[in-house]
Design a protein around this nucleic acid. Structure first.
Lengths: 333, 333
DNA sequence: TTGTAGGCGTTATCAC
DNA sequence: GTGATAACGCCTACAA
């Protein structure tokens, strides 16, 4: 970390310009910052020599004398995964509203990069928010007192700020919706995930039981978090339960894979098999029919994270924020 | 711009900690930075009081003494538009490879925000790259000598770094491909765009002429850069030219809208009407059939931008980089 | 092992 | 209008 630019020819400073222009460094400062008390001609001359010397003010020196500009670090697993751009946009937008800046960093879905990233990024910013899977205790030595907001952390208490989606509520909404549509033999496509190891699955089982569905563990299959994974798991479920009339998927990506596989097998969606995704990605709109899903307001999630950061920076104790998802009925149910 | 955090209770400094721990500020520095020459017990005590005082080192003071960490500003019109996340990822990845940081800022597609953003962001970073539609001359007073890399600027010479996609080559490839598939009556869906006011349209006409197609201005219609825009323009083209067998769209989003409208009108894609998009968004894969398109390597585009920044920072004169797109034949042609 | 002196590049204050 | 001088918070010598 913190690799530095080597042997670059030292940048010109205020004093260099002063010397070259034959004035005091103070006068240069006046010219650069457009203060009034300066002779227009001096000003012109100074600015000209500054330009020639490629002078640029040091943000560090400025920051030291004129502190207060807030910079926030944002850690996401993957910039390209369609879930995160909206989240990032929410953070940037909320930050921008107060003229704060956001440094975006990605772990590339590599959990081992989290801790070093928290440290190096944390040293450059006033606070950090993001998807971090480590515990408070693991984080502490790297956070070094850094105000930290963790997204999608379970409900364990934390000294850090916390924002999460009410996954269970989302699952219940999805199941209730399918039941309402008359479905009883509902399968679930589960995935491995650091963020949600069990909530979706367990809630699904509980909801199924509550609705008196003839559905248990054997109606749940697990696969990779990808279109391909979704397709494979759907194939397995369909083979095991030919009478299955609906599927609840771990997320939209997986749901899309399932949908494609269903088609391959000659099933019509939603007539022969309904499908509900999770996340509410806007790309679900592009499908035909568009994907029904449990919608997460990812922009809002970003805003909530920023609100936590503000609280933390104001020295307040953070109250965990919980975002309830909403059912988005489109065309696959 | 540059709004500051007001009346926050001044953060503890090295000296505050020193006073509280009854040592010199130097000793504190040693403890914080884990230097060897210090009594373990002193170290422990210092670290403890530092923690109590919520001490965090000032990045400005550190940067001043230990300069060299490079931070790059990145300006995009829209974080959510599926084109940009990949571009951003390319920039972040290339930056990360040298342990540089990236501050991402968005103009929210508002051209008027560009100039102020260049100024305020530019003051906080070592260089800026991004989609900026203003000219060198307009930029100069705001750039203040800032190393700047402009993406998708036309081939006009510039003092700034420049990266662009060879749009014309992409258009020619698309038209050639359609002709090869036996199409002659090809329509084009054009859009208004700051980045490309005319290249696509003019190249399309030129290519059509070269291939001897019975196609002129009247085969081009223009609409909004959205799915809806694409649908409307397709409707208009189809109405005007019922014998049209293929469409070249300004970009993928528009192409998707066109595809949907074609279906609405009872046309099979690609049998009754082939469609080629532009951009190579990965969401094109989700369609059925998947969208054929002129693919731009957006990650590579980001890398190229970073390479330009490196050159600029090294004091080299930037040679404009041109990225050739590639034809991606999927299912709609 | 610990403390003192000096400087990093800027802005602010106050003389001239 | 201009220029000394003193911060800002930290780190690197060097001295004790």
């Amino acid at each position: 970390m913190d690799k530095r630019q080597e042997n670059s020819p030292r940048r010109a400073t205020l004093r260099d310009v002063a010397r070259a222009a034959g004035v005091s460094h103070q006068t240069v400062s006046r010219a650069i910052n457009d203060k009034g008390e300066i002779d227009p001609e001096t000003r012109r001359r100074v600015l000209e020599t500054a330009r020639q010397l490629h002078y640029r003010p040091s943000r560090y020196a400025r920051g030291l004398v004129r502190p207060g500009l807030v910079t926030v670090g944002l850690i996401v697993p993957d910039v390209v995964n369609p879930f995160f751009p909206e989240f990032i946009a929410g953070v940037i937008q909320a930050a921008d509203a107060q003229d704060w800046q956001v440094i975006v960093a990605s772990t590339e879905s590599d959990r081992r990069r989290e801790l070093p990233l928290v440290r190096s990024l944390g040293r450059q910013v006033d606070a950090v928010a993001g998807y971090i899977s480590h515990t408070d205790a693991e984080l502490a030595p790297y956070a070094e007192g850094l105000p930290l907001v963790i997204v999608e952390r379970g409900p364990e208490p934390s000294l850090n700020g916390t924002v999460r989606v009410d996954l269970a509520a989302g699952v219940r909404a999805a199941v209730a919706h399918l039941v309402e549509r008359g479905h009883r033999r509902i399968g679930m496509i589960d995935c491995e995930s650091v963020c949600d190891p069990h909530v979706r699955r367990l809630t699904f089982l509980a909801a199924a039981a509550e609705h008196g569905l003839p559905v248990g563990e054997e109606w749940i299959a697990r696969g990779a978090q990808s279109m391909d994974g979704g397709a494979k798991v759907f194939a397995a479920l369909h083979a095991a339960h030919p009478d299955m009339t609906a599927v609840f998927a771990f997320n939209d990506l997986v749901a899309i894979g399932a949908m494609r596989e269903a088609r391959q097998r000659g099933l019509r969606v939603p007539e022969d098999c309904a499908i509900v995704g999770f996340d509410g990605l806007s790309i679900g709109e592009l499908l035909d029919p568009p994907l029904s899903t449990v919608h997460i307001d990812k922009r809002r999630l970003g805003e909530l994270a920023m609100e936590q950061i503000q609280a933390l920076l104001a020295g307040e104790a953070p109250t965990p924020a919980v975002l309830p998802p909403t059912l988005l009925v489109r065309g696959t149910t």
